[in-house]
Each structure stands twice: as C-alpha cells, then as structure tokens.
Design a protein around this nucleic acid. Structure first.
Lengths: 212, 212
DNA sequence: GGTTACATGTAACTAGTTACATGATTAG
DNA sequence: CTAATCATGTAACTAGTTACATGTAACC
C-alpha cells in the first residue's frame, strides 16, 4: 500500500524520504510519521528496480540542479533551504511506472487502498479509471446487500446507532462514487461530441449519422 | 483489537471460535473469515487468564447443559445441532472483565478500535462512557483542525473530490457523535431529575434546595 | 542554550490476511 | 456422492506502529 503511495507521489516529482512522509501524512487521512515503514519501503522499491536514488549533498558541489540556479551568494539559504544532512532523493523508474499502473487497478475492496488509487487515478486511461470506479461501486453494493441480508439483532442503542451510521456512510459513499462515475461518462460524452462535430465538419455532406 | 472484540462478545455469553468469527464478521464492518487471527488470539487470551475454555463434545455424555434439556430422543438434532467435531467453548474470566473495561477506555484515536469500544460501551459506567465519547470527539476535532490548517494543494479533480468527501464524512461523524453525547447528557439529567424528585419526596419540608 | 525541524535509518512489536491441512456432518 | 457448512488450527506473509539511535541546523 505504501508502494502505491510512494510511486504515485514520485511520479509527480522526485522527492526524498522526509518530504515523502510529510506528503503521505496529508494524503492518507491521519497517517503517523511512520519512518519505520517508509524507509524500508523505499529500500525495497529500489531493490526491485521501481525507484532509483541519488545522494544530494546539502552544501552542493553538485551541479544536477535546475540550469537556472540562483547565484552563489544566496545559496546558503535558498538551495540548501533546510537539510540537516545528506538527503537521498528518489526518482521513479520506467518499471516503477508500469508497476504503479498495475497497483492502480487491482482490487478496490480495500478502503485505504482505494483512497490511494483515487488519489492517483489521473494516471490511468479513462477506460481503466472508469473500470476502477465500477469495481469499487460493486464492492460497496455487495457490502450494502450483506448489511441488508442480516440486519442488527442487538437491541443495544449504541450498537444500533453504530450500524445506522454505517448505513448512512455507505449510502453517502455510493452517492459520491456515482457522481464520480457520472463525471467520467460526461467527459467521455463530451469527447465523443467533440469528435462527432469534427467528423461532421469533415464530411458535411453526410445526411443522417447514427440513430439516437 | 481482536482482544477487545472477543472479550466483549464473550461477556455477552460463552461462545466457541467458529461462532465468534461469525459475530465478528457482522460486528466489524467487512471482517474477513480470518481464523488465522482469531484462534491464536483465543490461545493468547487463555494464556493470560482472561478467558477459559471447555471442550464440548458434539455427542454429549456431558451434563453441563441447561437443566431443562430436551429428552433423549431428539438430541441427535437439537443439542448437537451442527458440529463437525469437538468445540472449544470459551468463557470470560473476572480478570478478563477487568481487562475489557480497560480496553474500552484507552485511546479512541483509532477508527476501528472506537467502533468496537462503542459496540461494547454499555459495559462502562455512564461517566466513563461519556469520557470515551468526549475523547473521540476531541480526536475528530483535531483531525478537522489539521485538515483546515493545510487544505488541499492539488488541482486534480479526483483528489479534490476525495478531500471533500473526507470533510463531509468528518462533519457527519461529529454530528453523530454529538447526538450520542447529547443522549448521554439527557439520560444523566433524567436520572438527576428522578433522584431530585425522590429527595424532594423524602424531605418535603425542605424549602430551597440548591439554587438552579 | 534548549527546543523544534530536518534527515535517515533499525529493531521489536502489533495487527491482520491468505493459504493450507484436517476432518466431521448435513442438505440437495 | 458432492457441495456446503461446521470446526480448529498452523505457517508464511502483508502492513504498519512505536521506540530508539544519530546527527545537523535554524529559531527564539
């Protein structure tokens, strides 16, 4: 799961571990500053060839930075910015990008995973993205069906309140997902309309087109 | 976490592992039929003296059953009901009940744990129950504050949609919790009114009582 | 001169899943 | 007779947390 998050964040741009962790915290709702998971994950990703790393000196003789580097005099504050020690900046590899696309499509029966998949689903093709949403939708529907099949037996008010909240949450989630799906379809329709208009333009002599 | 769920369920009545797992499935939203976690947990709980177990033969020479046992002839279907093999029925011990009360009060910053705490919070005193709710409320408020402090930077529509859902969920959850808390306070007020009436009855000569 | 933030990492632990092994009983 | 359900368990794995170790540099 961390793999998905890390690869997704690295696809947006190169980062070092500490910075990755900060972004993870805001991305995953209430994620601990759990370096104990992140650094081993980065090492693993590198071993498997999905990311590569570059040691970056805080006081750089390094010249790998952007070509329009600020001049020497304000380096001490601007390029070093803040860095206690040498950082390891990670980049995603081509193999890593392929793997990311795989991770973005699997399952969707896991709340946390789907959250990450959604956060990076823009990297998928529209078709695969829609498939992901539909998969999640099917899962939510099956949960809802299960809940309806065997309703709460308990008479305890706290348990009943809990289960009612669950149901409201499921319904809210489904409505939200449906809006996302509708958005996808609208986009697709827009694209198709656009293409149709171009087609019509290209062959203005055509009389009917497709029915409906 | 399983400890909490198991002790809570056993406090309601003696159960064997297989049955426990079925109840867990409905209690914890979408819990796998994960015997690989349950049976080791039961063994651990027993080692620590929080539960004790009794082997129950499916074709009982056993006489531990309720005194009003149905007669011999329909035993083969009614008392055995369904049992492929010898079951191990677990009971909660006194030490286990103490431990359960501890588990019911710790933290509340964990979604899944709080779910279980709520499911069994009826075993707490009203004071401790209210304290639990307030703890959870404080946690939700801090999450909300955090989200407000650094809002979404991303312009990606999927990410934005995700974070908006998060906020709606937080608000819905808080409102729900507030209703629970209000319920607790109402109960307390009811009790106090009741007691006051009794007090007034007992000493009808008393003129003022406490102001307000 | 102490606290906070930057930066990387390890070890031990918590928590749960997946897959397997085994075997009895019951319903179709 | 075969599939499903009942019933208990183990082993290997996935996933993440907590606590520790280490050191720099900026902020007040």
């Amino acid at each position: 799961m961390l793999d998905l998050a890390v690869l997704g964040l690295l696809k947006e741009g190169d980062l070092h571990g500490y910075e990755l962790n900060k972004r993870l915290k805001s991305l995953v709702g209430g994620y601990a500053n759990s370096y104990g998971a992140l650094y081993p994950a980065l090492a693993r990703l590198e071993r498997r060839g999905w990311v590569s790393s570059t040691a970056v000196d805080p006081d750089p003789a390094g010249d790998e930075q952007a070509p329009g580097e600020p001049a020497r005099r304000n380096r001490r504050r601007s390029t070093r910015s803040k860095s206690g020690r040498t950082r390891k900046v990670y980049q995603i590899t081509e193999a890593g990008e392929d793997h990311l696309l795989e991770l973005l499509q699997e399952d969707a029966n896991n709340e946390r995973r789907f959250r990450l998949q959604l956060a990076f689903c823009r990297f998928l093709t529209p078709e695969r993205r829609l498939a992901l949403f539909e998969l999640r939708r099917a899962h939510l529907l099956s949960l809802q069906a299960m809940a309806r099949r065997d309703p709460v037996h308990s008479t305890d008010p706290y348990v009943r309140s809990l289960f009612q909240r669950d149901q409201e949450r499921r319904e809210h989630d489904l409505a939200w997902l449906d809006r996302l799906i509708a958005g996808e379809c609208a986009q697709r329709a827009e694209y198709r309309t656009h293409r149709t208009m171009i087609d019509a333009d290209r062959s203005a002599t055509d009389p009917g087109g497709q029915p409906q």
